[in-house]
Design a protein around this nucleic acid. Structure first.
Lengths: 217, 217
DNA sequence: GCTGTTATTGATCGTTTGATAAATGGTGCG
DNA sequence: CGCACCATTTATCAAACGATCAATAACAGC
């Protein structure tokens, strides 16, 4: 009554097997956390546990690979350009961006592993935040100023509270997926409507405060 | 060179010892996660590991106690009343509420254990969200409608997107503390200024969209 | 088909970790 | 001072878990 041998030994090319292990590890660690056991991962993959150690010397190496696979290279430089395309209304740019960002980044795997990593004290999150501030939030703050008609574009640097305002827009979308994928709570089912509405409300607020002279922090 | 006996055996009353263990467990699990080892917890408490098992039959019992201690009874019914006090401007009510909520609820221990529990699949988060929607978000949505001059108070029920709009306000504050306590990232240092600004921006947005007739979802 | 290479498995090791039981010692009461 | 109670510790177990190594079998080349 042990492991009932259902499938015969399947021999794959090292590349294919590694791919399979990494993909399986992403799904597995996203679900149960980075403390998940290698034996259970192996069982889900339909292989034995020592096989994992042929491809990754230690569990930490596998986890590092998962981090790399999930986080590195997901950000697209063109998204920064999209935010700055002043030919379109800022509202449209933000809606377009968050539709793509929700589809390509804020997935079940990404958001859970991201939160597990944060709680584990990894610096991945801080590095990602630095990237976001530089490539997304400062550009958004700049566009909000321009759209609000606040002039001091190159004079006054973007203030802390202006970046926080850009965070509000981001937080609205991000937190939606936290509720959905981490708390597994009921959320607005129409994602497109949600994003449109979220951008409308948070952008309106950012514009209104900026117009009232809230540029200085 | 083992555990250098620094303090002699200290005998406490069961009540005092239990209190100490629970408090220590909250701080410990908040920091390292619910998978933290009982031996390490005991070491931090300055007692031996089996002592914990005299007070809590299993580790899960201790964790359940931590949940109870951290989550149960933190919400104050009077906060719902505060949201509805129409003698004051809604802005002031929200700022007052989030100052208290940030101080009393969104602490390091609370937000980390809350996120650990969510990732572990506990239903605590869903139950807390249900409480929040009922006691905070629906009241906020109601007040936003009233403040925006949208009439259909008792007629049209609060829509999904209106609740999401209330979530935007909440998410702005909540996410600030996620960045601070989970990612350990740099955040706006002036909490009062942040809360004021966050309420201004997110409330402005909620009002603007509601005024434009965005009541129906 | 035979054979060498190597992907994969079975068996197992050492440590970690939740949990238990017996020994120890502090405290209050007579 | 002596004794009983019980809070606390020491010692230890069994399962879980990361990791290792020799044995096995799938596939390629001849």
């Amino acid at each position: 009554m042990q492991t009932t041998r259902v499938a015969p030994r399947q021999r794959l090319s090292p590349e294919a097997r590694e791919r399979q292990i990494v993909d399986g590890a992403i799904a597995f660690f996203a679900e149960v956390g980075l403390a998940g056991q290698t034996r259970e991962l192996a069982q889900r993959l339909g292989v034995t546990q020592p096989l994992i150690y042929r491809y990754f010397p230690t569990k930490q190496d596998l986890i590092d690979r998962v981090y790399e696979e999930v986080f590195v290279g997901r950000w697209r430089a063109e998204w920064t350009d999209l935010i700055g395309e002043r030919a379109r209304p800022l509202r449209d740019r933000l809606i377009a961006f968050y539709r793509i960002y929700a589809r390509d980044v804020l997935t079940y795997d990404w958001i859970r592993i991201y939160m597990f990593a944060g709680l584990a004290g990894e610096d991945i999150n801080r590095r990602y935040i630095a990237l976001l501030e530089d490539q997304l939030l400062v550009p958004i703050a700049r566009e909000v100023r321009a759209a609000a008609g606040a002039p001091a574009l190159s004079e006054t640097p973007v203030s802390g509270l202006e970046i926080e305002a850009a965070w509000h827009i981001h937080a609205a979308v991000f937190y939606y997926f936290v509720r959905k994928h981490i708390y597994r709570a009921k959320t607005e089912p129409d994602l497109n409507a949600f994003i449109e509405d979220a951008v409308d409300r948070t952008l309106d607020g950012a514009l209104a405060v900026t117009r009232r002279g809230g540029v200085a922090g």
